[in-house]
Design a protein around this nucleic acid. Structure first.
Lengths: 359, 359
DNA sequence: AGCGTTATGCTCATTGTGAGCATAGTATTC
DNA sequence: GAATACTATGCTCACAATGAGCATAACGCT
């Protein structure tokens, strides 16, 4: 007892009895192809996905095979933590991600730990997911194979404002929000709902805040416009309408968390470069940033921001296949991490996005 | 199998055998008294701290009592997750925090999940800590009682620049860094070490970045200037010098993570108000911000920032006991959360801090 | 009354941001 | 082969935000 070690039988006295906690590692793997942001999804846990399964095999699965785990819906890939072999959580994640997908992950960052009840196993264990955000280079979608690169915004269609406000907002979301606010039972409740909707969705003069992804998701979940497959959570019953592609369990919540984090990072860390090949045109860079932030940027100002902050340097090479005047190829200047430790590619305050009226 | 539930026997196949994972919830509870930022610390796990224990009882503890858990050093309080009763992790944390300290926590945010090996129990279980950051109102330190409000910077003294660069930097840290860089075996390694030190500690023209707390901590840990009590981690052996007050296990790392997160939040979220009473003078607000950011701010510009962004509103009341001209009392305008959803009390780029030469 | 101390108002130079005009090179079309 | 479409790139200008500091106000104390 003199070694200063940690004795968990005290630390987890709440874990008495036969109910334990089980831990898995989830990865939101992000890539951008062209102007489409994508995340890696699977239809059942990766470790048993030993062959391509674009086909839906849910019906044929025997009672205890793995397919029911995701209920036939896609989810984000996860892998187990090996408490013995994995020295750190991050190494554990890299291990199974490499083993099971072969994907080369550059940037990797812990996102959040999800542990609400409802994530419960039949054996009664509590289930905990430590989710990581992983960024990988621009990839061409491989048509086959078990994991599927799914367009990120297919799950959160209200988040993509690149072509103006998504139609779904006016058509379904705003009316549902109005109903929800109007149906408040007390004045106090009305005011709270009103303010919450205003903040999350930018109603009545409040500007739309691209970063408030999780607020929006959770509000939509509460009013029953998006569903989760987690039993025991108390969402309103479905509203008749279902918005966006559903995912297994609470995975869409995890995906929303990842988008919020990544959008936040954009403004103070040069994360976009993790998603691009070694050299790229400024348009490609801008497309990646727009894809993630969900907003259009003013082209000349974007260029000015990137060049004046010396985030990139010329390579001397030229990209010819632009459809117009050839563009110079740039590479990321890693030195900026030292020179200006907090620098990003979108600005933080005010209206950052503008339609270009340059044509 | 038709309910879409999650079946952890697949999800955690890595957990086979008799090695399991044990989960605890840690809380970094922050308060500011005057200009001293403090965190709540304990000398042994809170659930067995049923009476004041400022005295060190390590020697008298029987073999399986709890005292050895923190090895006689202070740590941050933690409590168990009750997998059955606690619907969410956050509620679980609020439960034991209320039960065991009675502290009224306003702001609560998940910080990070720590799960490196080394956090291992004698029974062989892997230990996972989900850490939360909690902010509470300005408190006067109660001299006695089990939990102790310890000055935050006593653990991380190199982070407090309010009175200029801390002496410890020039005296111990910079020389140690130089040694460490010089002792690199290859050119590549030298360059890497050099760049890392430069980024973390702002050497040679690179500005000191107040937010890079974790980088600095981890570098100091690697070169052996700060110690952790976690077995199996490979820090350099102690350098002869020990900087800052040590903590149990890897708790100082958790504390550094919390400081980094909080400093980051300062610039885009009005978190400082969570640490203040309902009404306050602008000086009090500034002191809190300075205490957390570790830097002095220009008084008139700080006032301008706060007032022009309409973060506060006048109460009409006056605080007389200022030592000079009486100051107006303000209150936080909660509406700003709706009007300007991303707003903070320190700016992000450039040199934000300046000594006022106003006298 | 004079001094120390903190509060508060205001100015001014500089930099950062939003918006758009103008021109340069490609490929494609008539 | 000129017109057209399209993307790249250079540049300007108004306005907002920031860094720094001067000046004055209002208290307690000697």
């Amino acid at each position: 007892m003199t070694d200063g070690r940690f004795y968990p039988e005290m630390a987890t006295s709440g874990n008495r009895g036969d109910v334990g906690v089980t831990v898995g590692l989830n990865a939101i793997v992000v890539a951008v192809t062209g102007d489409v942001p994508r995340i890696l999804t699977v239809r059942r846990p990766l470790e048993i996905a030993d062959h391509p399964l674009d086909s839906n095999e849910a019906e044929t699965a025997p009672e205890h095979s793995g397919d029911g785990a995701l209920g036939g819906r896609e989810g984000v890939p996860f892998g187990p933590l090996d408490p013995v072999a994995d020295r750190t959580l991050e190494l554990g994640l890299r291990r199974w991600l490499a083993e099971q997908t072969g994907i080369e992950v550059g940037y990797l960052e812990q996102l959040y730990t999800f542990g609400d009840r409802g994530r419960v196993a039949p054996v009664g264990n509590r289930f905990l997911s430590v989710a990581y955000l992983a960024l990988t280079r621009e990839v061409e979608v491989s048509g086959s194979g078990a994991p599927i690169w799914a367009p990120w915004y297919s799950y959160l269609p209200w988040e993509d404002w690149r072509d103006g406000p998504p139609a779904i907002l006016g058509k379904h979301i705003f009316p549902a929000l109005q109903d929800w606010i109007a149906s408040a039972s007390t004045d106090r409740s009305w005011a709270q709902r009103h303010e919450r909707a205003q903040i999350a969705f930018g109603l009545g003069g409040t500007p739309w805040n691209r970063n408030r992804v999780l607020d929006r998701y959770e509000l939509l979940f509460e009013i029953g416009l998006v569903a989760e497959a987690v039993p025991g959570t108390d969402s309103a019953s479905t509203h008749g309408v279902e918005i966006g592609r559903p995912m297994a369990l609470d995975h869409r919540r995890i995906v929303a968390t990842a988008l919020e984090r990544l959008r936040g990072k954009l403004s103070y860390r040069p994360v976009a470069f993790e998603l691009l090949p070694g050299t790229f045109t400024l348009l490609r860079l801008q497309q990646v940033v727009e894809a993630l932030s969900g907003e259009r940027l003013h082209k000349q100002n974007f260029r000015r921001l990137v060049e004046q902050n010396r985030l990139v340097e010329r390579t001397g090479d030229i990209e010819v296949r632009t459809g117009g005047r050839p563009a110079e190829l740039f590479r990321f200047r890693r030195e900026v991490l030292r020179e200006r430790p907090a620098i990003g590619v979108v600005i933080q305050r005010g209206r950052l996005a503008t339609e270009t009226h340059n044509g």
